[in-house]
Nucleic acid binder design. Structure first.
Length: 1049
RNA sequence: GGGCCCGUGGCUCAGGCGGUAGAGCGCACGGCUGAUAACCGUGAGGUCCUGGGUUCGAAUCCCAGCGGGCCCA
């Protein structure tokens, strides 16, 4: 087979479509898995994306990191498990479905369409999105097991989750308790900490007077405790006021009234008012003082309670009054205080956030909407001290964005606080990249972890497998469907695990009553937390679990510290006493160009599909891995995307270059014997380089420093391969026939490109596949049919560090030559007679000698002379006026004249030998000491120099007749080439050239006629009036000529 | 309020066991011309976020502050 002609320029859309169709038709992914069936296992667990819509850039980045790493692992010989996962349950989907169906509350769900239909819709919605997102991931070239993913609504998956809860129960870690928890009044459910977003919010800020029941006689008039709150709606539930026992509290007289508040905050509240501090006491002295609720008229129930001042360690002096309004039904701290002092947990708010009957006048009002009414009532009773507005951080339901409220409710908890030590010790067994992700960040989270509220009063989720008897209170946790069938004596078939079906299954209780299921569903973080074994259907099935658990690797964004990293650790310790993962890469977030979070409301969202449509998936993949360290946030930047695209274009150009010439010459890598091929230093150099880069890339990917791998490849492709190697071998590709020298270049370039596409295949799978197919495999048909089936190999024996170092030096020298020519305005096309390389570093001189052929050609010189010094440097001694002026006076000019004639080098030698130098001056002798002359150096005419790291180059730019002759010939060649290009001739086309020029010009180029003919593929080179298809006038220096060319058949 | 990370030319980022600041892009100028809707060279451009400290010497180490991101309260 022969090389196929390459597309002119890099067209990712065609290439990627072609590659994906190829993989699809050849089932390449499946082959790559099968290929490694017997390799060592490497287990990976996909953090399941949530199926609520299209993927965004962050999701794309996440999967691209996974895909690159796993493709590499597969090529490196591992049997990699890479099942895709999908997170499908929970409020986000319920919320979207509610929107689609126009439902506004739980009541509407149950009465308007019913739970059964609602669940069905949720499932359909999840399945649709799963399909869309799968397609998007595939478009990015992500290889996973898309056909057999784990899905959290799969009944078998759900059973594993039930089993986990049963384990928690067996360990006594599953408890029901009345606690104050964060609550979404719109979704009417408990929320876990992980389900709350914090944003800025405007709220009322009011100071309320709570009158003390008994006024002390010495404080004339009424005394009120001053309390600050931003949630007036919690005032109806006020049961106590807390003060810090150690702080000082002041009685402050302001006009007719007296107020009690922390002394430290008096100034911030009374400020410029004309107030008087009557007395200061410790907080502890205030304990037990009784006060009156300010809204007893509106809320008669409040008359039945006694209200006291209580001590509270949680009270701070950062804001407010140091006297904290305490409503045990609406705050976690308040709740603890209430329990400690036996105060009733009064909570006059229902699950929808509406005031209940106990709230008296406010009954039926939504809490937040009652704020102004409550404020107004306080005002009427003269209980409002001050009113304002405050901007502060407040929690919102992560999905419906409703401000959360705190409610005292009965919920189910996992007692995380009880297993915290075990969580921490398991954490120590995990390897984190970067290390601080685990050692600092995650550890900090776990140290602060509280018990985990796992019950949700919703529909689309894994039902809590807890059955309780309403008669005797007996409770049982069911661990599987089979167990439920057994206990209920019912035949259970199909998906009976979801609501509402499972709600109808009752279990006969020993007491003779019926056990009914707790109607709650589970927090979705439990769903994904159990993925480690649920994806393997453990414990229902054992074999996969034994093979693949625990997982060698997971990677997710840093938001998953509180999410999946945590839920897996918690569930893992509960179910299996171990953390399910061994190594974690915590990656960053994608931000917009200004470093702001991408969000729909800001309109700065970049869709991955948009980038793919413009530049292709490979460019996006390479960019995302290249742009920064994986664990840092990534500022998306279109300019950089273009930059990467440019690099791909250059790689493509190298490939086009290779395929063009190799195709013309019908190059066959397997046809030649070693003796047919002549390798030059530059061939050995690029071979060494590509293996060095292979080492770097391997180390970088292994360390998950994917940016280093990408940057190393980029640097190699641009600097070494394109800018240097291709430049060095260009001359050799122009040689006719099967010249060993040309074959050496072909073979080296071929093997280098082969290694590059292998190395780059995990990052840019499509492009590498395309080049592999059309340059490599079409010539080596016995190779595996896809680049992704190759073995990852590095041949360290080909690495020659000395050669690489030498080439570095030589590149610097050649650049210096170019600079020197540039300053002398001496064209690179014109050869020079000699270049002297001067360095005190022996290694530099050796490098110049070792790679002399490269230097001669690239510096376009006839001769290279390495030297420790530049012999032709003129040294000129000039008189030092400071010393000689006073001494010699008017003889100074004569001395100066003499010095100018003398060879400076001899003067130095003499002075070094004798310590003095004598000058004859009209009979008299002048004695010059070392301080009397200063030395200057001067370059000879026609020499320019330039520095490079390690030395200097001296370029002889003198134009001899021979040089001029060659220069003119090259100038003529360039012009004829230009005309060939104007005609868009095929590279190998032969032409006839006729040149009309002066006799002088003809004589100049005469010695180079063969050279010219060869360079421009002229079968005939005639010096006569042009008679061609195409003629053009040219001026070369002072020579005017007319050139005509004609294509020959 | 707490934890973690980040803050280097106009832009994106290297460097970071302390020793005269680097690259790419962009800009300006010059060059090259069968890889050519490319490529090469040169130049301008930096209080290395701010302020303290340690040190002969700090972009680098320490402390405080400011700004950004994530997580928590």
């Amino acid at each position: 087979m022969v090389i196929e002609e390459a597309q002119r320029s890099y067209n990712p859309l065609i290439i990627e479509k072609r590659a994906q169709e190829f993989w699809e038709s050849r089932k390449t992914y499946q082959m790559s898995q099968k290929n490694r069936e017997d390799g060592p296992r490497f287990s990976f667990l996909d953090g399941p994306p949530y199926c609520s819509g299209r993927i965004h850039l962050g999701t794309a980045w996440n999967k691209i990191i996974k895909d690159t790493y796993l493709r590499y692992k597969t090529m490196a010989g591992f049997n990699v498990r890479r099942q895709a996962g999908w997170d499908t349950h929970g409020l986000p989907i319920e919320h979207k479905v509610e929107g689609l169906l126009g439902l506004k509350s739980k009541k509407e769900i149950e009465t308007k369409i019913g739970i059964e239909n609602f669940i069905k819709k949720c499932q359909e919605f999840a399945i649709e999105n799963q399909a869309v997102m799968t397609q998007q991931f595939k478009l990015l070239g992500v290889w996973m097991d898309w056909d057999q993913p784990y899905v959290t609504f799969d009944p078998k998956y759900m059973e594993s989750c039930w089993w986990t809860l049963k384990r928690a129960h067996e360990k006594d870690l599953l408890v029901q308790d009345l606690r104050v928890i964060t609550w979404c009044p719109r979704c009417e459910t408990a929320l876990a900490m992980a389900e709350i977003d914090y944003e800025n919010k405007e709220d009322p800020s009011i100071y309320v007077k709570f009158p003390l029941s008994v006024s002390e006689p010495e404080l004339s008039g009424n005394t009120s405790v001053l309390v600050w709150t931003t949630t007036p709606w919690t005032l109806p539930a006020n049961m106590a006021i807390c003060v810090h026992p150690d702080y000082d509290y002041a009685y402050v007289r302001d006009g007719e009234e007296t107020y009690l508040l922390a002394e430290a905050l008096v100034d911030s509240i009374f400020g410029e008012k004309d107030y008087e501090i009557l007395k200061v006491v410790k907080g502890s002295q205030l304990e037990g003082l009784e006060y009156q609720h300010p809204l007893t008229q509106e809320i008669p129930v409040q008359n039945d309670f006694k209200h006291k001042i209580l001590p509270g360690e949680h009270v701070t002096l950062t804001e407010g009054t140091g006297c904290v309004h305490t409503a045990p039904g609406h705050g976690p701290d308040d709740f603890e205080i209430g329990k400690a002092y036996g105060i009733p947990i009064f909570c006059p708010v229902d699950e929808a956030g509406l005031f209940k009957q106990e709230a008296g006048k406010y009954q039926g009002q939504f809490v937040k909407e009652a704020d102004p009414y409550i404020i107004a009532d306080l005002e009427i009773h003269g209980r409002l001290f001050k009113e304002g507005i405050i901007q502060h951080r407040y929690g919102f339901c992560w999905r419906c964005k409703t401000p959360i409220i705190y409610l005292a409710t009965e919920q189910w908890f996992l007692k995380i606080t009880q297993i915290k030590d075990q969580l921490l010790s398991e954490l120590d067994k995990v390897e984190w990249v970067p290390s601080w992700a685990g050692e600092s960040r995650f550890r900090n989270w776990i140290e602060n972890a509280r018990d985990w509220t796992i019950s949700r009063q919703r529909y689309w989720g894994i039902p809590i497998p807890i059955w309780t008897c309403s008669d005797c209170g007996e409770m049982t946790v069911v661990g599987s469907l089979e167990e439920l069938a057994h206990l209920s004596h019912e035949k259970l078939e199909g998906d009976v695990l979801h609501r509402p079906y499972v709600d109808q299954v009752n279990i006969p209780c020993q007491c003779g009553g019926q056990m009914q299921r707790t109607p709650d569903v589970l927090d979705v973080w439990i769903d994904s937390g159990v993925a480690g074994w649920a994806a393997l259907y453990y414990p229902q099935e054992q074999e996969l679990f034994e093979q693949w658990y625990p997982y060698d690797f997971i990677t997710e964004g840093h938001d998953q510290t509180r999410g999946w990293f945590y839920s897996q650790l918690g569930c893992g310790v509960i179910a299996l006493d171990s953390v399910p993962y061994r190594k974690v890469l915590m990656h960053g977030f994608t931000l917009d160009e200004e470093g702001k979070k991408m969000s729909k409301s800001l309109g700065n969202v970049v869709e991955p599909d948009e980038v793919v449509a413009k530049y292709g998936a490979d460019v996006l993949r390479f960019y995302l891995l290249w742009a920064n360290k994986p664990w840092e946030d990534l500022k998306f930047n279109w300019e950089e995307i273009k930059n990467i695209n440019k690099m791909f274009n250059i790689l493509w150009n190298v490939y086009v270059f290779a395929s063009t010439y190799m195709g013309l010459d019908d190059f066959q890598p397997k046809r030649y014997n070693p003796e047919d091929v002549k390798l030059r230093d530059e061939d050995r150099w690029i071979t060494s380089r590509v293996q060095s880069v292979s080492q770097e890339v391997t180390e970088a990917i292994e360390a998950l420093h994917l940016h280093r791998a990408a940057r190393s490849l980029q640097d190699f492709i641009l600097e070494d391969l394109s800018r240097w190697y291709v430049r060095l071998i260009r001359g050799r590709t122009w040689i006719e026939k099967d010249d060993p020298d040309k074959l050496g270049a072909y073979q080296t370039l071929y093997l280098t490109l082969k290694q590059v596409v292998t190395l780059m295949a995990p990052i840019a799978p499509h492009l590498c596949e395309d080049i592999y197919q059309h340059l490599i495999r079409c010539l080596e048909t016995d190779l595996p049919e896809s680049v992704h089936l190759l073995d990852w190999e590095v041949d360290e024996t080909l690495v020659d560090h000395d050669l690489e170092a030498d080439m570095d030096v030589v590149r610097h020298i050649i650049e210096a030559c170019a600079r020197a020519r540039d300053t002398a305005r001496y064209k690179l096309r014109w050869p020079v007679q000699e270049i002297v390389i001067v360095s005190e570093d022996q290694k530099v001189l050796e490098a110049a000698q070792n790679l002399e052929s490269v230097l001669l050609e690239q510096a376009n010189t006839k001769k290279i002379t390495p030297s420790q010094e530049f012999q032709d440097l003129k040294i000129i001694a000039t008189p030092n006026m400071k010393t000689l002026g006073p001494r010699l006076r008017k003889d100074v000019p004569k001395v100066a004249a003499k010095l100018a004639e003398i060879d400076g080098k001899k003067l130095i030698d003499k002075m070094e030998a004798d310590g003095v130098f004598m000058i004859d001056l009209d009979g008299s002798t002048v004695e010059l000491g070392p301080g009397d002359v200063t030395m200057e150096t001067e370059l000879p005419d026609n020499v320019t120099n330039s520095e490079f790291p390690g030395g200097n180059v001296f370029v002889d730019t003198q134009i001899t007749p021979e040089i001029l002759s060659e220069a003119m010939s090259r100038e003529l060649v360039r012009r004829i080439q230009d005309m060939r290009k104007d005609l868009d001739l095929e590279v190998e086309a032969h032409i006839q050239v006729s040149v009309d020029c002066s006799a002088e010009f003809y004589n100049l180029v005469k010695p180079f006629l063969d050279f010219i003919s060869h360079e421009v593929r002229a079968t005939e080179l005639l010096f006569q009036a042009p008679d061609g298809d195409y003629t053009k006038d040219w001026k070369i220096e002072d020579h005017e000529l007319i050139v005509g060319i004609k294509q020959l058949e």
